[in-house]
Amino acid sequence: MLDEAPFGLVLIDSARLLRARCDRALDAAQLGLTAGEARALFYVNRHPGSRQAALAAFMGVEPMTLVGYLDRLESLGHILREPDPTDRRAKTVRLAPEAEPLLEQVLAVFRGVRESVLEDFAPEEFDRFKSMLARLRARLLADERDGVAP
């Protein structure tokens, strides 16, 4: 029996627990959004005017999953879908101006979770950790894009 869990399992377990904490924090904030919808709102703001398929790729979700989030966000008036000027069959998505205060609330919820779970980390530890995770994500995305097998 191994004493130490493999890196991948520790990372997966940590991500699952963090996601659950974010879900509970969003519920407690009573913003009326699921974690997936909140995440979609963030990515729509981060990549304004992107096509739905591109947003799904940025988020790492199936297009049909994203469509469900976008349908709800649109029905609540938080996003705007518009025909892509280069391809009228495609839709681009952007944040509705009225949703900016909601996005700020969502980001405040996530900041609160981050501060809570990382309170034992020194600021330089957090900065290094975030940088390392960003590099890991970039590597994994590149490998996936290039079809690199495990």
Results as ranks from 00 to 15, higher is better:
residue 29 A to K: 07
residue 29 A to M: 09
residue 30 Q to G: 10
residue 30 Q to N: 09
residue 32 G to N: 03
residue 32 G to Q: 06
residue 33 L to E: 02
residue 34 T to A: 04
residue 37 E to L: 08
residue 37 E to S: 08
residue 38 A to R: 00
residue 40 A to C: 12
residue 40 A to F: 06
residue 41 L to E: 04
residue 42 F to C: 11
residue 43 Y to D: 12
residue 43 Y to A: 13
residue 45 N to Y: 11
residue 45 N to G: 15
residue 45 N to V: 06
residue 47 H to R: 14
residue 47 H to T: 13
residue 48 P to F: 14
residue 50 S to N: 13
residue 52 Q to P: 03
residue 52 Q to M: 10
residue 53 A to K: 07
residue 53 A to N: 08
residue 55 L to I: 07
residue 56 A to L: 01
residue 56 A to N: 05
residue 62 E to I: 13
residue 62 E to H: 15
residue 62 E to N: 14
residue 63 P to S: 05
residue 63 P to E: 07
residue 64 M to N: 03
residue 65 T to C: 03
residue 66 L to W: 00
residue 66 L to M: 01
residue 67 V to P: 02
residue 68 G to N: 08
residue 68 G to A: 10
residue 69 Y to M: 04
residue 70 L to W: 00
residue 72 R to Y: 12
residue 73 L to I: 10
residue 73 L to E: 03
residue 74 E to S: 09
residue 76 L to S: 05
residue 77 G to R: 12
residue 78 H to F: 15
residue 79 I to R: 01
residue 79 I to G: 01
residue 80 L to R: 11
residue 80 L to W: 04
residue 80 L to F: 05
residue 81 R to A: 07
residue 81 R to I: 06
residue 81 R to E: 03
residue 82 E to R: 13
residue 83 P to T: 03
residue 83 P to K: 09
residue 84 D to M: 07
residue 85 P to E: 07
residue 85 P to I: 06
residue 85 P to S: 12
residue 85 P to G: 12
residue 85 P to Y: 08
residue 88 R to M: 00
residue 88 R to N: 00
residue 89 R to F: 02
residue 90 A to K: 08
residue 90 A to C: 05
residue 91 K to W: 01
residue 96 A to N: 00
residue 97 P to E: 04
residue 97 P to K: 00
residue 98 E to T: 11
residue 100 E to V: 13
residue 100 E to Q: 12
residue 101 P to W: 01
residue 101 P to A: 05
residue 101 P to Q: 02
residue 102 L to R: 04
residue 102 L to C: 02
residue 103 L to P: 03
residue 104 E to R: 12
residue 104 E to W: 00
residue 105 Q to Y: 02
residue 106 V to D: 05
residue 107 L to C: 12
residue 110 F to N: 13
residue 111 R to V: 05
residue 112 G to H: 06
residue 112 G to W: 02
residue 112 G to V: 01
residue 112 G to I: 04
residue 113 V to M: 07
residue 113 V to R: 08
residue 113 V to Y: 05
residue 114 R to E: 10
residue 114 R to V: 09
residue 115 E to R: 11
residue 116 S to D: 08
residue 118 L to H: 06
residue 122 A to D: 01
residue 122 A to I: 04
residue 122 A to L: 08
residue 123 P to F: 08
residue 124 E to M: 09
residue 124 E to L: 10
residue 125 E to V: 15
residue 126 F to W: 10
residue 127 D to C: 00
residue 128 R to V: 04
residue 129 F to D: 02
residue 130 K to I: 11
residue 131 S to T: 15
residue 132 M to D: 15
residue 133 L to P: 07
residue 135 R to M: 11
residue 136 L to A: 15
residue 137 R to A: 12
residue 137 R to T: 07
residue 137 R to K: 13
residue 141 L to V: 14
residue 141 L to H: 14
residue 144 E to N: 10
residue 144 E to V: 08
residue 145 R to D: 01
residue 147 G to V: 06
